[in-house]
């Protein structure tokens, strides 16, 4: 694997391999000395054209635990926010000798443009591009599901037959896209629930079931319920009348939590709007995996960086 741009590019074996490797990384993380020497002498650049402290910290921790040198190249207040092109930035990074580039960009497809450009020869990891994909988020979500559902017997397994319902702004969500393709590859059954305004045209061609009714989705007792963030800029763009109405119809509140089976997982990629798409009661319940998702993110990103830059199989 040279780049990780989309979960759509992953075969089932590759996906399971990444999840298994992340298990190894998680185990190493429980040792007294957390650092592994795998990427000593390699340089990983975090190239962030868009603010995301959480994702950046996660990748940075992952690279450092593998002993890589990490350079943070952030848009805010630097030349990249003042219109320096992706091309110029890429050529600068190539001159620095970057072995891997972790890129977060506001434009869908920017990581693929970078990977295919010939401007730089580094491995490229998509850390979220526009409304396209966020593949490491999809992988960490799958890892989290597998861990909760299969525990210590996770290794080598996929998610066959697991029912996952994803609720919220599918149209603008890169997390939803990465999850849909990966979960399909891993054998899970995915249902999307949202107001019709927040579902992309053509969603009927996706390998998913689609519904508009969250109560019906909860009544179907999914193994996993994943709530997506509603961004504030959607509020005034006629996607739904008011935040209150959205919350009443598609928010996961305490009352809906009570109707969800005790064994079902409640997930959210963060950051959350408590009281809008998810209540505090739901977010902080025992069924919530939200804190684990953060921890698992580091393991998954270690696995991905290892595969791309150490070049080996597990």
């Amino acid at each position: 694997m040279k780049h990780l741009l989309s979960t759509k590019d992953l075969s089932r074996d590759e996906a399971v391999q990444i999840l298994d490797l992340a298990e190894d990384m998680a185990q190493a993380g429980t040792r007294e000395v957390k650092k592994l020497p795998a990427l000593r002498g390699r340089t990983v650049v975090n190239l962030f054209f868009e603010d995301s402290t959480r994702t950046k910290i996660s990748f940075e921790a992952a690279a450092k635990r593998l002993s890589a040198d990490v350079i943070n190249f952030t848009a805010k207040g630097s030349s990249v926010s003042k219109g320096e092109s992706l091309k110029d930035t890429a050529q600068t990074l190539a001159a620095i000798g970057a072995d891997g580039v972790v890129i977060r960009h506001h434009s869908s497809g920017a990581p693929r443009v970078l990977a295919q450009s010939g401007w730089i020869d580094a491995g490229v990891v998509n850390a979220g591009d526009g409304t396209h994909e966020h593949p490491t988020q999809g992988l960490l979500d799958a890892f989290t599901m597998r861990k909760r559902l299969h525990g210590d017997a996770s290794r080598g397994r996929a998610l066959d037959g697991v029912t996952v319902t994803i609720v919220g702004d599918i149209l603008h969500s890169r997390v939803a896209r990465s999850n849909v393709w990966l979960l399909e590859t891993l054998g899970a059954e995915v249902t999307l629930v949202a107001p019709a305004t927040l579902l992309p045209v053509g969603v009927d061609t996706w390998p998913v079931a689609v519904g508009y009714d969250l109560d019906a989705a909860v009544a179907a007792k999914p193994d996993v319920l994943m709530m997506l963030r509603i961004q504030s800029e959607r509020m005034n763009a006629a996607f739904f009348p008011t935040a209150r109405e959205y919350s009443r119809q598609w928010g996961f509140d305490d009352e809906r939590l009570a109707r969800l089976p005790a064994a079902s997982l409640v997930m959210h990629p963060g950051p959350m709007n408590r009281g809008l798409e998810i209540s505090s009661g739901a977010a902080d319940s025992a069924r919530s995996t939200i804190i684990e998702q953060v921890a698992n993110g580091v393991s998954i990103r270690m696995a991905v960086l290892y595969l791309l830059l150490a070049g080996g199989a597990a």
Partner: peptide, 8 residues
């Protein structure tokens, strides 16, 4: 369908 997939 393609614009939905590509996030454009």
């Amino acid at each position: 369908a393609l614009s939905g997939e590509l996030g454009l």
